[in-house]
């Protein structure tokens, strides 16, 4: 199988495409294919981020055959087409090859004071939904897929909407301020394309969080 990887030597460098041939088992993840390319004592390894290798950490988020996905969670034999095309996430600055700087996610959450502070559970909220949101990997796939998220913009994207619901349900703090931040950094910019739910690797029901926040 032909594998095309979009590479970049360092931040700001001109990206280029490199082609490889993969001849191994097709019943493997894209992470395994990248590992295979890198494993033959290759003097020019493709850099990529990984930690858990089982869709629990979000490290290996990238664009695979045009779709934002986790490499360890995407299986080659389930992909359409005869070639595998891998690119780094496009909405984050590239550090090297498939490794991107997703620091903006944390920065934005900090900017919007996304924390619980003093805890108090409001029983009218759904513990099950909070649990699902608590599983968010902060991988950035929802931001990559969201047509409204633009780098550097005031719109912080679906993961912020989820976390807004989470802190609203579990914080004793100023709920009006939470709602104001939600409106300012999410509600006004969301066109409800719902691409976020389609690409979320842990299936967070973002629409439920949005619906409940909008009703406040």
């Amino acid at each position: 199988m032909r594998v095309k990887i979009k590479r970049q030597q360092y931040p700001g460098a001109e990206p280029f495409w490199q082609e490889y041939t993969y001849e191994g088992d097709m019943n493997v993840s894209v992470a395994a294919v990248i590992d295979s390319i890198n494993s033959k004592d290759n003097p020019d390894v493709v850099s990529w981020e990984c930690s858990c290798l089982q869709a629990m950490c979000g490290g290996c988020a990238m664009v695979i055959n045009g779709v934002p996905r986790l490499a360890c969670d995407t299986f080659v034999n389930k992909l359409k087409g005869s070639e595998l095309v891998i690119e780094p996430l496009r909405k984050f600055p590239v550090i090297k090859d498939l490794v991107v700087d997703r620091g903006i996610i944390q920065e934005n959450l900090k900017k919007a004071s996304t924390y619980i502070g003093e805890y108090e559970h409001d029983d009218k909220y759904s513990q099950e939904l909070e649990y699902q949101i608590g599983r968010c990997l902060k991988c950035g796939l929802c931001l990559e897929a969201c047509p409204n998220y633009v780098k550097g913009d005031n719109f912080f994207g679906p993961l912020f909407a989820d976390d807004s619901y989470f802190i609203n349900a579990r914080s004793k703090g100023d709920k009006k301020a939470i709602k104001r931040n939600y409106d300012k950094h999410f509600a006004k910019g969301c066109s409800k394309a719902l691409a976020c739910e389609k690409v979320c690797p842990v299936n967070i029901p973002t629409l439920s969080a949005i619906a409940r926040m909008n009703r406040l």
């Binding site: 930690s51 629990m56 990997l137």
Partner: peptide, 10 residues
């Protein structure tokens, strides 16, 4: 990397 990548999440 951020804490979300730590082994703790496993």
């Amino acid at each position: 990397f951020p804490s979300e990548r730590a082994q703790s999440v496993l």
